[in-house]
Structure formats: structure tokens, C-alpha cells
Design a protein around this nucleic acid. Structure first.
Lengths: 340, 340
DNA sequence: AGGAAGACTGAAAACGTTTTCAGTTCCTTC
DNA sequence: GAAGGAACTGAAAACGTTTTCAGTCTTCCT
């Protein structure tokens, strides 16, 4: 029923080898090439990629395994990766683990069984651990999140530096009781927390940290609980845009004014962070650049399998908005009054 | 170098056929199964999916071709599709056309060459046209956007109804000069425009329509131009959340107050639409349901290739917020004064 | 006891390609 | 005018599976 290279060969009066050569721009005379191309059109032939891959032993496919397809950070990275791959004549298989280690393991296995040429991977902490014990047998580049040290090329943000910058900024604006809300499933959340802790210590301030699942819906009850308490922080640093959105919603629900009652800062300069009132102070990540760099690292690795492992660290850009406006004496006293 | 089923067979002292049967839960004695499983573990064997697909002639893979991976509508649908597929033991290849007909054609061809079991597809208008002239040779379900009538199963929103609801709502709130901003590349934009036109006609109002590329960045200059004119509309209906965000940004940039100077309504109840001030009135689409329905239609089609073509039309839910608050006489006169 | 039926197993033939290898032809070069 | 290359072509052997087909044992019936 489906038309194969043999059918084309028969129709063109040549051997299958010749058809294959036409397809692959091999050496074949103009006359025959013409005949074959006509036969291809006439028969409506379509190559079978499985057969091609099986025989030729290279897939021209890279696997991209991200943790949360709904997080705009990852879609932006994915788009960049795909564009670069496309221009290089490669395909991308995009997999979404939803931060679930079981799905993550399943997709990692799948990618290896697909014999992908390379892998770009944002592991959960569990996944990173698994990677240490049982490395993947295909060239891989980690993105956004680190894994076992020295084993994989990676492209990440300077998470500690970025978190410190946010804390420094808040301190400078007069905030002291600064809380930190971090994603529990990634090295990224952990590193941002470390940067937060370091900065708090440097300023002689007492840290207050919560780790939550890094999706808005799941984390909100915990956040609501926290911000509802009497000793709630004056300012909150969150580790991604979904948590930031959740924090805004919770603050609104509790009737907290931003920044008078609660200053907010976070990561990822999504378009909407500039549209809410007040605008939200965030660290902007160079997502496209991260995707491109990841592909570059991957290509380099494919080309030189034994080169030294590299980690590319990119810096975030601090976008200051009114959610972290200076904490004035007036505001502070107003808060004190309303709290009494 | 890579370990095949033959190596496992040799290690286990059985034939390749037996190994294959163990892998596929075929009939094999407990004793041999045990031996083979041990050999699999010992050798670190991984099936080669290309070979398996080639021989068995079914891919257990469905292709999902969406128009814009950065549009949360599509990521939400994608997530639902993937979850259902996963539970059914199938894989999903996600492709992003970026509304580009060339990329779209290339991915469609690719999916057929991959011999995917089925296809879920949100075509551009160009793509839908191509589909008419040259139907795809694999079971396909359209999603979000329609194609040539009667050729494909589809799951779509009641776009005309939803757009009419928005217009009706605006009219009821006292707006008369209502503009429409629609995505130019999809049937969806077209249908929403039709609903808009119908409602405007029913109310005896003069329509004012702009078609733009359905991504925020690209469309903004055109929108800025429009809203900067003296006869700009009092209210704007947009056909997706990216355009809506763009409209908000433009309005802010021009110093237009919402809704006093410009009321706004659109599609897709993204979390942030409730966080901006004022909240944005939108049509909420049942994205998860759409993804699930699409998979259901696809499964049904695979099971009964010759059944009648079905279109599932789902209704949107109108989420009213303050971006379309009643146009009071006071406000109206204030606007008139400021405009003079 | 004799067969039929069932349960398992292996040899070998696919699946649709690419690639190697060995020809052909035809031109160039001495 | 013969040898030596180019330049092209086809036969056939892979690639790693699954599946068919034909056994070989058991077991179960009559």
C-alpha cells in the first residue's frame, strides 16, 4: 500500500540504489536523475525515516526535555533551540516532564531508545541525582539547571548573583524582613536560595525561606498561609514567574497592597510583569541566548566528544519596577497603624 | 558498539525471537523469561525504536503541530494531549510552526515521513488551503482552527458565538465605537471577526476591523497607530491573549486609561489577565478539554477510519472584569472634554 | 495406545533504507 | 592503441527488529 524506494526504482527503470542516490544527492547522471525525480512525483513516494535512520545510524534529531511546558521560560528556550536546529537541518523532539521524576526518567529512556544525536535537558533534582549514578549514553547539555559536577556541558544563569542582586536592591530600598519563596524541584531554586541566604547574611538580616512546588496553583495555599501570618515578611523574592504570579494573587486576596504591605521581586521578565500595577521587579533571563548557547555546546560536543566539559554562565538583567519601590517612613507607619 | 537483541540472545543462550517475545510479552516460559531478563540487565540492552517501527509498521506516535508555542493556549492544549497520549502508551512529537506556512508544510511532510499514527494540527489559513488541495495521508484532527469543510475531524471553540458575546457585553455596558483586532493567519481570527461583524450589524453599529499577525511584538506598531488616531474606538475586542497584552501595553504607552478611554476584551483567561489593573474581560477557552477531545476524536478515527467526519464545538466562558466596566455618562463626558 | 491439541521455541523472511563492492562505459593520456 | 582513470550504475549485504512458519515437546482425551 505504501510506496517504497523499490516502487520508484521500478517505475523509473533503475535500481533502488540509484533512487537512493538521487535522494541523497549522490553521483548520478542528469538523465537518470530526471527520470527518477519524475517517478518520485508520479508515485507520490515519501521516504521512511525509520528505515533511513536504522540503516544510516544517525537520526539528525535532538531531544529537548524540559520541566514545565507552561513556564514561558522554557517555551522561549524551546523556540530558540528549535530554530537553531531547524537551520542546521536537525529535528527536535520536545518532551515535558511536568517536574515529575517518573516521567522524566521515562522520557530520558525514550530519547536513548530513539537514538537521538544529542540531548538538551533541564533536570529535576531527582533527575540530576539519577544522572550521577547512571549517566545517559548520548551527548547531553544541561540547561537552566545543573547536574552532577563536571559530567555535562551546561548553560545556566548566574542564579546566586541574580538572587543577591534582588536582595541587595530590596535592602537598599529599605526592606529588612525579606522572605524567599523557591521552587523545590530544581537546582535553580536551590541556588537562588543560596544567593538569597548569602546576601541576607551579608546584610546581617534573618532569612525566612519556603520551598514549594514551582507551579502557581500547587504552591498558593502554602503562600497564602505564610502571608496570612502576623510576622509575614515585608518583601518577598520568588524564584520564577509562576510563583511570582501566585504571590501577586495571594497578596490581592489577602488585601495586601504592593509594595506598601508587601514588596515583590522575582525571575523572568514576562510581558505581563510590566502590565500589572505596580509593575514587578524581576531578573530578566536571556532565554534565546541560552537556547542558542545550549545548541552550540551540543554541536561542539558532537564534534569533539572528548573536549573538556564546559559550563556557560549567563548573567541576568535586573528590571526595576514599582513592586519594590522605596519603603518610605510614611508607608511603614501606615502599615504599623493598620496592623495595630 | 551498541548492543542489539542478538547480543542479548547470545548472552541468554536463546534465539533473537525469544528475546523479542520477552520484550513484547509474548508466550515464553517462565524459566527462559528469567534468563532473558537477566541477560538484558547484564548487557544494558536498549531497544532500537527505529528498527521496531520499521518492522512492526506502527509508530505509537502522534504528531502535534501547533502554530505558536509561546501562546499559552497551545501549551495548555499540548499538555493535555501529551497526558492523554502518555496514558494510552503513545508518544507525542510537538512541532511549532510559528505561523509560518513554510515551516508548517515542512513539519507536515516530516510527520508523514515519520509515519506517525495520527496528527493533531492547528493549521494556518495557508495550511488549511494546502490541506484542501493535497490532503494529508494520515488520520488527522484539527484543533482550534478549521480546515476544508467535511474533510477532517475537528475540535474548535464557538468562535462566532464568543465574539458576539463580547460585543453584546460591551454594547450593554454602553460602548458604541467598538473596534476589532484579529489574528490574520488563522480561521479562528476570521471566525471571531465574523461573530464581531454579525453582532455589530445586529446592534446597528459601524464595525472597524484590523487584521494583524497574531503575535504581540509584530502587531504593536499597527495597533499603536490605530489607537493614536483621533477617531480611535472606545472599546477593543482582540482575538487572543498575546494581542490583548499588546493592546494593554499600547494603551499604557499612549496614556489611555482602561476602561475610561479604552475598554478591552479578548480571548484566553491567562492567569495574568486577572492580575493587571483593571482585570481584563476575556473568553475562557476549555483548553484541557479541547486537548482531550482531540485525542478522543483521533482514537475514534483510528478505530473507525470510515466513520462520518465530526466537529466538536465547545463553548467559551465569559469572564467579566473591570476592563469593560460600564461606560458612565461622567466618564464619557470627561473623555469628550479631554479629546476637545 | 494413538492421536489431537496446546504451549513453547528457533530459523528465516521480512520491513525500507543506505552503503559497499564490483562492474560497466567512456574518456584521457602516453 | 592500450592502459589507466573518472564517472556512473546495479546487486547484494547490511541496519535491528517482529512475525510467520514449521517444528518439538507435553498433556489431555477417547
Amino acid at each position: 500500500m505504501t510506496v517504497s524506494i523499490k516502487d520508484v526504482a521500478r517505475a523509473a527503470g533503475v535500481s533502488p540504489a540509484t533512487v537512493s542516490r538521487v535522494l541523497g544527492n549522490g553521483p548520478v547522471s542528469a538523465a537518470l536523475r530526471e527520470q527518477v525525480e519524475a517517478a518520485i512525483r508520479a508515485t507520490g513516494y515519501r521516504p521512511n525515516l525509520s528505515a533511513r535512520r536504522l540503516r544510516s545510524q544517525h537520526s539528525q534529531t535532538i531531544g529537548l526535555v524540559v520541566a514545565d511546558i507552561r513556564n514561558p521560560f522554557f517555551t522561549s528556550v524551546a523556540r530558540a533551540v528549535e530554530t537553531v536546529a531547524y537551520d542546521a537541518g536537525m529535528r527536535v523532539i520536545l518532551c515535558n516532564t511536568d517536574e515529575d521524576p517518573a516521567r522524566e526518567a521515562m522520557y530520558l529512556r525514550l530519547m536513548q531508545e530513539e537514538r537521538v544525536t544529542g540531548l538538551i535537558f533541564a533536570p529535576t533534582r531527582v533527575g540530576a541525582d539519577t544522572l550521577r549514578r547512571q549517566p545517559v549514553d548520548v551527548p547531553a547539555v544541561l540547561i537552566d539547571r545543573t547536574g552532577p559536577a563536571g559530567l555535562f556541558d551546561a548553560v545556566v544563569l548566574d542564579n546566586r548573583g541574580a538572587a543577591q542582586a534582588l536582595v541587595d536592591h530590596l535592602v537598599e530600598r529599605g526592606y529588612r524582613r525579606i522572605g524567599g519563596l523557591f521552587g523545590a524541584t530544581s537546582s535553580t531554586g536551590l541556588e537562588r536560595q543560596e544567593g538569597y541566604l548569602a546576601a541576607m547574611a551579608r546584610h546581617g538580616l534573618t532569612p525566612a525561606v519556603r520551598f514549594v512546588p514551582p507551579q502557581a496553583e500547587v504552591s498558593e495555599p502554602a503562600v497564602r498561609d505564610w502571608l496570612g501570618q502576623a510576622d509575614r515578611p515585608e518583601a518577598l523574592v520568588t524564584s520564577n514567574s509562576l510563583l511570582l504570579a501566585g504571590a501577586v494573587r495571594v497578596a490581592r486576596g489577602l488585601g495586601l497592597r504592593i509594595p506598601a504591605d508587601l514588596a515583590l521581586a522575582g525571575f523572568d521578565n514576562e510581558p505581563w510583569t510590566g502590565l500589572v500595577d505596580p509593575g514587578l521587579t524581576v531578573i530578566e533571563q536571556p532565554t534565546e541566548e541560552m537556547g542558542r548557547q545550549a545548541m552550540q555546546l551540543l554541536f561542539d560536543r558532537l564534534h569533539q566528544p572528548d573536549a573538556a566539559v564546559r559550563t556557560v554562565v549567563l548573567s541576568g538583567r535586573c528590571v526595576l519596577r514599582d513592586s519594590t519601590a522605596a519603603r518610605s517612613a510614611v508607608t511603614a507607619s501606615a502599615v504599623a497603624a493598620s496592623a495595630s
